[in-house]
Design a protein around this nucleic acid. Structure first.
Length: 854
RNA sequence: GCGGGUGUGGCGGAAUUGGUAGACGCGCUGGUUUUAGGUACCAGUGACUUCGGUCGUGAAGGUUCAAGUCCUUUCACCCGCACCA
């Protein structure tokens, strides 16, 4: 028997597809289009299992839709700007451009070895001027359209390296390389006005019907629309007042303090007068800029000594604190604290011994005795201790307070968003230069269009800390485009989310001089199916949605939503291993000894098995896809990726699972190479005499096509695989010599080949050829099915007594209750369970269940 | 802290609208062929059992003739949080 030679076959088919340009497409208006896109990778060096899963999913969809007659656009490119290239440059002294290009070359080869159906003629890399030139133009158009502006904003600052740090570079409040305490520092940066679209982005989420609910909810929460009040608190002994945003103005009578952010103008002003306060502010600024760090830090405050008047009671004053949990970015950067009904405020009040006055009590509670302990009362209730609000519910109270505050000119209704404008300036080298020139006389000048692109210089050095663009000898020195006097280029670059916010559009016309060719973009967009990691649920996807709107406003394209369908895949997990010293071990370094215990391959020392976790370099629980592909082939890897877990769930990588996939592929091959039933002639008519058993298999073929099509449409890929396996089990088990069997076997095998083609394209082509076909599977349409063969004429119905299963009966389909009772009541097990008791009721659900209640 | 998600045999997972829990695969057990081998094939495989049955979908309640599925409470784990991509 000839074993299936995957190595030879896979590279041969990959070459065939490429040589024949099988996946290159053009706009064809009379064909239905389908744009399937996987999130393009950052060229980190080698592909990892997450990529393999992502691209296998995309390829399956692309090939399936092609078989169903769509004109499928399926491109691939490289998200090539980013921090790792700079880190590599510093660590290994390789220029980022070179490092990136090498990685792209390696990863392109790796992707090709997976047999993915990409139109490589559309490949792009975001680090090439040919790509980023267009986004510089877009940015200038955004400024023109009022969608981009400059303002001061906070960054993580490493005082030792004199450099800005990313959140991931801040480890426990210290710089990852220097170990210096990180500070917050203010810089002037560019922002895109995503908040201008806050309502539109929020409302349109409803229309994204083919997006997972959880992503939609996450985006809704991220935008965080809240209706509330901006309330004025008059400062005592001062002219000015404090403005506070709140969604719970109804709890104003329970206010016991006000707190402002350490970065609030008032805090800064007071900090100049008090050294102690300045120290406290500095301490807050060491917390880092991430929301998680701020919210989880212990609540701390500093009493400014100032007080404000309660808007409803002149005689009542509240102390004003500077607090580390108040964010300047949200609302007005100031809050009023109502400890009884907000846990953070309560923690704070207990710490600083501030009064806790309950103003909402549960319906059945006694207003006089109701107290709040260490848990804030945040549920629905009735107002107490609240003057004119007493007795009202929260929802009733809100408009009453709002009217009152507005009447007193002490507050206004306001809608606030958690969403902040998108800061796009990065103090980094390896990114797209921001096309701006700063002139002492003329100010901030856009680079004139005829001077675009502003190219990133390649001759840079990382010898000194900070941004290489800043210390490049000549790059930043230019003449002002307006007055001609010496000026300086902006040395910041764009956030790399900038590139990924429009690449899906560039793929439609990857070589167009104008960037986005209107006709091409109109034809292909939106992306019909976008596939990628759940980790991008908010930022990348929200930025892209905003960017598309901005591009629409500037006349680049005519769609509002870039991605009509979205599928988010789960992560790849693997068991973890540690040696006796607690050091992590690669799966390769672990073997089973004779006793069946896990030991290190090298020394035989015992190994501790940890639970399966997301594959990560730090825990070494990684498997290199390249090794898997060379050992088992791309089809095996692809099959395994689709077999067990549904796409949106985490997937456990196991050696045994891969072996199972590999065995199945060999079995498929054997079913053509050494079939149990002889394979009927190609194109022969169906013989008239087909035995009952064989007819059953024939039905199975049609039922499988129906079920698999349905599963693929719903992205239930693991179920589709299971159903195909069931059909192959049936075909393999036929083992008959009749003419009818041979005909059904060929029909079945041809169907199997077509069904597996999107999953295991190489062996599908190979089998197709072995079945005597001269064309390619990728050119054949998806199989159809005969409706009349889908329904069985008998069904198995469960028989229960008092809801407990007691047996099953085979009944003609759609038979009536009397017929079912006839058989069901005679079952031994049923008779026994009834035990002579009176039958009170019989419930019958046709074709499903017969339940006898006694 | 806030937000989101997951939980079913030894394991990954199936299970239309509430209607035969465990499809398909992995692993394991026994057997056959005798394969140099991780191959192939057949049978079995939720737990307990006095072999009559009984119990089983993270836990505890509830609704129902009937609950993995609906409701309430609760536990555990995972992910995101704006300069990683």
């Amino acid at each position: 028997m000839a074993r299936y030679n995957f190595k030879e076959a896979e590279s041969r088919w990959q070459k065939t597809w490429q040589d024949n340009k099988c996946f290159e497409v053009t706009e064809t208006p009379d064909l239905p289009k389908y744009y399937v896109l996987e999130m393009f990778p950052y060229p980190s060096g080698r592909i990892h299992m997450g990529h393999v899963r992502n691209y296998t999913l995309g390829d399956l969809v692309a090939r399936y839709k092609k078989a169903r007659g769509f004109n499928v656009l399926h491109p691939m490119g490289w998200d090539a700007f980013g921090l790792p290239a700079e880190n590599a440059a510093i660590a290994n002294n390789v220029p980022p451009a070179e490092w990136t290009q090498q990685n792209i070359a390696t990863m392109r080869d790796q992707l090709n070895s997976m047999g993915l159906s990409y139109d490589w003629s559309r490949e792009l890399a975001t680090c090439t001027p040919d790509y980023y030139a267009h986004e510089q133009k877009m940015f200038l158009d955004f400024i023109e359209a009022g969608l981009a502006y400059r303002k001061e904003s906070w960054v993580n600052w490493d005082p030792e390296e004199n450099t800005v740090l990313a959140n991931e570079q801040v480890i426990e409040g210290r710089g990852w390389r220097s170990g210096a305490l990180v500070e917050k520092k203010q810089l002037t940066q560019w922002f895109l006005k995503i908040t201008e679209y806050a309502d539109d982005l929020l409302n349109s989420i409803k229309e994204l019907e083919r997006w997972p609910d959880r992503v939609r909810i996450m985006q809704e929460n991220w935008i965080g629309r809240s209706e509330g009040m901006r309330v004025k608190f008059q400062l005592t002994d001062r002219e000015d007042h404090l403005e506070v945003f709140t969604t719970r103005a109804d709890t104003l009578f329970g206010a016991s303090f006000c707190a402002i952010s350490a970065n609030h103008p008032l805090a800064e002003q007071l900090g100049k007068e008090s050294e102690e306060l300045a120290d406290f502010i500095a301490e807050c600024n060491r917390l880092g800029t991430s929301e998680a760090a701020i919210e989880t830090a212990e609540k701390q405050g500093f009493d400014t000594g100032l007080a404000v008047m309660h808007p409803f009671a002149d005689d009542q004053t509240l102390p004003v604190y500077v607090a580390n949990f108040v964010l300047m970015e949200y609302g007005t950067g100031a809050i009023f604290g109502c400890p009884a009904h907000d846990q953070r405020d309560l923690d704070f009040a207990r710490k600083y011994e501030l009064p806790v006055i309950p103003v909402v009590a549960p319906k059945d509670a006694d207003p006089k005795s109701f107290v709040v302990g260490d848990v804030a009362f945040v549920e629905e209730g009735i107002h107490i201790n609240s003057d004119f609000l007493d007795g009202t519910s929260i929802e009733e109270a809100k408009p009453i307070v709002a009217d009152k505050l507005e009447a007193l000119c002490a507050g206004t209704r306001e809608i606030n968003y958690r969403l902040r404008d998108w800061g796009i300036s990065r103090q980094r080298y390896w990114g797209c230069p921001i096309p701006i020139i700063n002139c002492e006389n003329c100010g901030t000048m856009p680079v004139p269009e005829d001077q675009l692109p502003v190219e990133l210089p390649i001759d840079i050095s990382f010898d000194q800390p900070g941004n290489p663009l800043d210390h490049h000898p000549s790059w930043k020195h230019v003449d002002c485009p307006s007055c001609g006097k010496p000026a300086e280029r902006e040395t910041d670059t764009f956030d790399t989310f900038f590139e990924s916010s429009w690449y899906f559009a560039r793929f439609c016309s990857p070589h167009a001089d104008e960037g986005l060719n209107k006709a091409a973009v109109d034809y292909w967009l939106p992306v019909d199916q976008y596939i990628g990691g759940i980790e991008h649920a908010v930022l990348h996807l929200l930025y892209s949605r905003f960017f598309t709107r901005a591009l629409q406003k500037c006349g680049y394209l005519d769609v509002k939503e870039p991605f009509a369908g979205l599928m988010t895949q789960g992560m790849i997990c693997h068991e973890t291993y540690q040696d006796s010293n607690g050091a992590w071990l690669l799966p390769d370094a672990v073997v089973k000894n004779e006793a069946g215990d896990l030991v290190t391959a090298e020394t035989g020392d015992p190994v501790t098995l940890g639970r399966s976790e997301k594959m990560s370099k730090s825990k070494k629980n990684v498997v290199d896809p390249e090794i898997i592909i060379s050992e088992y082939g791309a089809d095996t890897a692809r099959l395994f990726m689709l077999s067990d877990s549904p796409p949106d769930r985490d997937l456990d990588w196991t050696e045994a699972g891969i072996e199972g996939a590999w065995r199945y592929i060999n079995r498929l091959w054997r079913m053509i190479d050494e079939p149990n039933t002889s394979i009927g002639e190609q194109g022969a008519a169906m013989p008239g005499d087909i035995s009952e058993d064989v007819e059953k298999v024939r039905r199975n073929v049609h039922q499988t096509v129906h079920a698999v099509s349905d599963d693929l449409d719903k992205f239930h890929f693991n179920k589709a695989v299971a159903r195909i396996r069931e059909l192959t089990n049936a075909l393999d088990g036929m083992n008959s010599a009749s003419a009818g069997a041979s005909w059904v076997y060929r029909d079945g095998m041809e169907t199997v080949v077509k069904l597996i083609a999107p999953i295991m394209p190489h062996i599908a082509e190979e089998m197709w050829q072995s079945l005597g076909h001269k064309n390619y599977v990728i050119e054949t349409p998806w199989p159809g099915y005969d409706e009349t063969l889908l329904v069985e004429d008998t069904v198995t119905v469960g028989v229960q007594v008092n809801g407990k299963m007691r047996g099953t009966v085979d009944l003609p389909k759609d038979c009536d209750q009397a017929a079912a009772e006839d058989v069901g009541l005679k079952l031994d097990t049923v008779v026994k369970a009834i035990d002579g008791k009176d039958i009170r009721k019989i419930i019958f659900v046709p074709n499903r269940i017969l339940n006898i209640v006694v």
